[in-house]
Amino acid sequence: MTTLARTSTRQRQWRGAILAYLLVAPPLLLMVLLIFIPATQSIARTLTISVDGQPGFSFSRYAAFFSDPISVNNLLFTFQVTLLTLAVIFIVCFPLSLYLRFSTGRIASAVQILALFPLFVPGIILCYALIRFLGTRGTLDTLLSLVGITGYRTPYLKPEAIVIGLVWESIPFTVLVLTAGLRQVSDTLIESARDVGAGDWTIFRRIILPLIVRPALIVFSLNFLGIFGSYTIPYLLGPAAPQMMGVFMQQTFGQYRRPDDAETQAVITFLICAFVGFLYVRTVASQRLTREEE
């Protein structure tokens, strides 16, 4: 290669690198400005106390949070609702996704449209619709009365209502990701398993499940993040106590006017979500690495 050609190749590589950095810069800058800096500042503030007018390092705010039964109860309640909701989401969405992956025809198309419908309903409208449907003397109560079933106990203002609302809201995203993951499992992979003697259950357990671990992890982590920090549905459908962290934070900040405590609650919530976020990033990164290897 001549010196001229080498210089030209190097210039092209430089130009490519600069363009790549320019493309990455805006989202990176936004993340730094809107997430990393405020989060770091918040974490730093929650670890700082003023002693005789001088700032000092302390875990006292966290000690206060974890020694307060209401705060701990709210954190545990948030975990319980999140995990229960995730379990129900998988129980509802997995069979639905399997049906959509392996079925064709008009009914499957109609089911797909229905499954995606909640995507187009704003959360607040969904909440009022559920209140009308599930509440005392609501649609469900009325229908049950019509067939002679009385004594209906509404889940409204109970944890179950939060779970129902969050499950409803999460169905479209979960079905989309799981169905896309299932579509990656080709028909021939399934047919070759059937060919060596595997029945439906064995194919599901030994072939399909292991192959959709990654999409399932993505669904788990992204839904976890959404549910753990959710506000509208727990606020409108859930009980007054215990509260989910989103509602608790808002009340501590807005009603009780205790921004320092709200900030500590926010940091705890953020750290839990960041851990799950890390799982998500690791899953996506390993998926990319596998694709590159293939």
Binding site: E191, S192, D195, V196, I207, E294
Partner: peptide, 18 residues
């Protein structure tokens, strides 16, 4: 297919990747 005394080699690569 899972009950027949046949075995098939497919056109595409069909080894289970996991």
């Amino acid at each position: 297919a899972n009950k027949r005394p046949t075995a098939m080699v497919f056109q595409k690569y069909t080894l289970w990747p996991h």
